[in-house]
């Protein structure tokens, strides 16, 4: 067998993601300090041997808060995409496979939802649910449904008339069997890459909502919330905002690289 040459990008993406996972694990096992303990004497302290990345406006260790914050942000992104992908998969599979009236109705509804900016729509849902970690996960999950539904629908439409689907249909396989046993495994690459892209969108969306103060609530930490805090001290302590910003960019860059690499790998 000939082996494919894996691109440099693939290796970079994998190592970046490995770094992120290591950071999350570090945060899970033991943070250098308790991320919630305040110390007024250390207010906005510069980085030092004790506090590698310095301290925030309440004297909390920034490194510890980032380690926990990345975890919160990632958990929200994961939850959001699981909700979005699961409901989107059901909607997309049904509309794409059957077509017809169900498709028309659901897709026009989908278009209507998609035409709102996602932040605005999340705001509306959060207004109904209240703010907090679980609430924004659910709100963003709902907002993510239409884009998943659309991608999955087009994949199902492509596959539903393939010869292999025709032949299992002739064998007497039911619709559910065809949809989930025969077609689903064939769209896994598309699903995986959209999950990774969705992950990035969720990270950004969480940051925006927490920045607006309706996402993750203090004293919990998330990257968006920390960035919102840091903004007030942009001139007094630019390092704070830059540090949080760096981690956010790193997170997004890693997943963007990963999704590109996955797609290329599948097409090679």
């Amino acid at each position: 067998m000939r082996n494919k040459k894996r691109g440099l990008q693939f290796h970079i993406a994998i190592s970046f993601v490995a770094v992120i996972i290591a950071l999350v694990l570090w945060g899970l096992i033991r943070t250098p300090y308790d991320p919630k303990v305040m110390d007024v004497s250390l207010k906005l302290a510069k980085s030092s041997a004790d506090h590698l990345l310095g301290c925030d406006q309440f004297g909390r260790d920034i490194l510890s808060r980032i380690l926990v914050g990345i975890r919160t942000t990632l958990m929200i992104a994961l939850g959001t995409n699981l909700i979005g992908a699961f409901i989107g998969l059901l909607v997309g599979a049904v509309t794409g496979y059957f077509g017809g009236l169900a498709d028309e109705v659901l897709m026009r509804f989908n278009d209507a939802v998609l035409s709102f900016p996602s932040i605005l729509l999340s705001l509306v849902i959060i207004a109904l649910l209240g703010s907090g970690t679980y609430q924004i996960t659910i709100a963003m999950g709902i907002v993510f449904v239409p884009s998943y539904a659309r991608i999955i629908r087009s994949e199902f439409m492509k596959c539903r008339n393939m010869d292999y689907v025709q032949s299992v249909r002739l064998m007497g396989a039911g619709a559910l069997r065809i949809m989930f046993i025969h077609i689903l495994p064939n769209i896994r690459v598309t699903l995986l890459t959209s999950l990774v892209i969705g992950f990035n969108n969720a990270v950004l969306c969480e940051a925006a909502l927490s920045f607006l103060g309706i996402g993750v609530q203090p004293p919990q930490a998330s990257l968006g919330l920390m960035l919102s805090d840091a903004q007030a001290y942009l001139f007094a302590r630019p390092g704070y905002a830059l540090t949080v910003g760096f981690f956010m960019v790193f997170l997004i860059l890693s997943f963007a690289l990963l999704s590109d690499a996955l797609r290329e790998d599948a097409h090679a």
Partner: peptide, 15 residues
């Protein structure tokens, strides 16, 4: 039962 010309698309590539 039916068999087709395009053998590649007649078989589920994921199985």
């Amino acid at each position: 039962q039916m068999i087709f010309q395009d053998t590649y698309h007649s078989l589920n590539p994921a199985m």
